[in-house]
Every structure is written in structure tokens, then in C-alpha cells.
């Protein structure tokens, strides 16, 4: 009966509260909780298992004890990784790449989205569609020609970009800019036109209209786009795998996979610790800014 009381409070309109009906609802609610628990376990097993393994010593991992439980928790894996220069280099490279890519992405996509949403010009509608189409072109289609392009460019100009972490600053925007532009077009288009008309009448330039009115009003959209750009550049795996090979140029995902796996020897304690530390920044952002994260996720298909 306690459960029926809670739905009464939460969704008063949807619960008529008559005898058989509320009994049905109570049953439906119990089943919902039951299945949600199963799905939540399914979702959380891999990250939790990462955590469990990261707290084990290699002796405990190779002993045939219950793998789901830590009997002698130790932080040695964390200490080893966080004091290893190699791992810190990966972390530093990943952080640099992500921060720069987010900045570049926002500098390109916010003005472009403003122009496409508000300043109708020749070909602007086609360009907006083109931006969306670009978003649908996957990285797995472009990595071979891009690799060859940069190799040819290096031979031709003498500027060697392959196997430098900053080559990723040029390539990642192809993944982030189209989506961010697309969702920013949606956010900008939802701002009432009276606002910018008033600004223009008051003598503001287009640039001032963008910085003084559109960016503050569309701030939730900008935060959502920033989070998207950050998670994409932090998680990207294919491009760094193709473009960087030297140990000091690797970003976190590739670094963990290429250096911690040595031949057939898997140091699982350290691999799981590295994976957990690599997953931490997006998870922390998600924990604090979940609503913006979800807004960005759903905006791609619901806006525009």
C-alpha cells in the first residue's frame, strides 16, 4: 500500500485511485522496479568490475578466489599508475587535446550556427543540411584517406604532422564541429526574433548581437555542445590509433591499450585502473551536469 501512496503524490493526474485500477498499478510498479534493477545491474557490472579489479593485487587476481569480491584491497595499482611518467603523459596529452578541441570547436561552430540560424544568405539552407550530412559521415570512412593526406602533406611541405599529438587538434573538429553546429542552430533558432531585431534597431552590430544576446540566452545549449565536444574528443580511439605511434605522443585510450598490454601478458589490475581513470573525467562531468548531457544527446534529433 505504501507504493500506491507514493504514486498518488508523484502523479496525481494519472492515478484515478479506484480499487482494481490501483492494484494493477501497484503490480506494474513492482514489476517496473524489478526489471529496472536487472537492467541497472547489467549496465553497472563492467564499471563496477573495473573498480573491484583495480583494488586487487596481481597475486589476488591470479589466485582462483571469487572474482567479484576484493579480499585484500590495495591502492598499489593507483599509486603505480599515478607516479608513472608514461601514464601521466597520456593523461596530459588527452587533456590538452580535449581542451584545445573544445575551444576550436566552439570558436568555429557558434558563429557559424548563428549565421546559419539568423542571417539568411545565399546557400545557407543547403549548408545547414550539409552540416547535418557531415555529422553522419563516420570516422571509419575517412581515416585512411586522411592518413594518406597528412603523409603526403608531410613529404611535400616538410612539416611532419603524423605521430604528433597535435595532429589530433586538426582532425577531431571533423567529429565535433558538425554536431555542435547542428544543435546550436536548433538553440539559436528557438530564440524569439524580437530579441535580435530589437538589438539591431538599437544599433548593435551582428557580432554584438551574437556575443551580448545569443550566447547568454543560449548558454544551456552551449554547455551541452561543450560537453559533447569534450566527451567525443576524450573517447576517440580510431584516429589516435592511426595517427600516433610513439609512446610519448599517445592519448589515454590508445596508451593504455598499447603499453599496458605487453604481448600475451595482461596486467589486469593496472589495465582496469587505467581504464577507470580514463573513464573518470566523462563520468564526473556526467554526474554533475547530467541534465545538460541529456539535453545535448536528445537535441540532435529533436531540434532543428
Amino acid at each position: 500500500m505504501a507504493s500506491t501512496l507514493t504514486i498518488d503524490k508523484a502523479a496525481p493526474r494519472r492515478n484515478p485511485g479506484y480499487g482494481s485500477m490501483s492494484r494493477d498499478r501497484a503490480w506494474a510498479l513492482k514489476w517496473s522496479y524489478f526489471f529496472l534493477t536487472i537492467f541497472a545491474i547489467f549496465s553497472l557490472v563492467p564499471p563496477l568490475y573495473m573498480l573491484v579489479t583495480s583494488l586487487k593485487s596481481s597475486q589476488e587476481i591470479s589466485a582462483a578466489t571469487n572474482p567479484w569480491w576484493v579480499f585484500h584491497p590495495t591502492l598499489s595499482n593507483y599509486i603505480q599508475l599515478l607516479t608513472s611518467n608514461q601514464f601521466l603523459t597520456f593523461f596530459f596529452n588527452s587533456a590538452m587535446v580535449s581542451i584545445f578541441v573544445v575551444t576550436i570547436t566552439m570558436l568555429i561552430s557558434v558563429p557559424a550556427a548563428f549565421a546559419l540560424a539568423r542571417m539568411r544568405f545565399w546557400g545557407s539552407a543547403t549548408l545547414a543540411t550539409g552540416v547535418f550530412l557531415t555529422y553522419l559521415i563516420p570516422d571509419t570512412l575517412l581515416f585512411i584517406p586522411l592518413f594518406k593526406m597528412f603523409a603526403t602533406f608531410g613529404d611535400w611541405s616538410g612539416i611532419q604532422l603524423i605521430n604528433r599529438w597535435y595532429v589530433l587538434l586538426i582532425i577531431y573538429p571533423t567529429l565535433t564541429v558538425p554536431f555542435c553546429t547542428w544543435i546550436m542552430i536548433g538553440y539559436f533558432a528557438s530564440i524569439p526574433k524580437e530579441l535580435d531585431e530589437a538589438a539591431i534597431i538599437d544599433g548593435a552590430s551582428w557580432f554584438q548581437t551574437l556575443t551580448r544576446i545569443f550566447i547568454p540566452v543560449a548558454l544551456p545549449g552551449i554547455i551541452a555542445a561543450t560537453i559533447f565536444a569534450f566527451t567525443v574528443s576524450w573517447a576517440q580511439f580510431l584516429y589516435p590509433l592511426v595517427f600516433t605511434t610513439s609512446v610519448d605522443q599517445l592519448v589515454l585510450p590508445v596508451g593504455i591499450i598499447t603499453t599496458l598490454i605487453k604481448g600475451d601478458v595482461f596486467n589486469w589490475g593496472q589495465i582496469m585502473t587505467g581504464a577507470l581513470l580514463g573513464a573518470a573525467p566523462p563520468l564526473i562531468i556526467y554526474a554533475f551536469l547530467m541534465d545538460y548531457y541529456i539535453a545535448g544527446l536528445t537535441a540532435g534529433a529533436t531540434k532543428g
Partner: peptide, 20 residues
């Protein structure tokens, strides 16, 4: 809780699956 798999970089979570 249910969105956590989508948030973790797939390269990292696949390592956990590989270990599982």
C-alpha cells in the same frame, strides 16, 4: 544509472568486457 554505459568511453568499457 542506466545511462552510465553510454558515458564511459567505449575503448575503456570494452577493456572491462575483455577482462570479464
Amino acid at each position: 544509472m542506466l545511462l552510465v554505459p553510454w558515458v564511459i568511453p567505449p575503448a575503456m568499457s570494452t577493456l572491462a568486457w575483455l577482462w570479464l
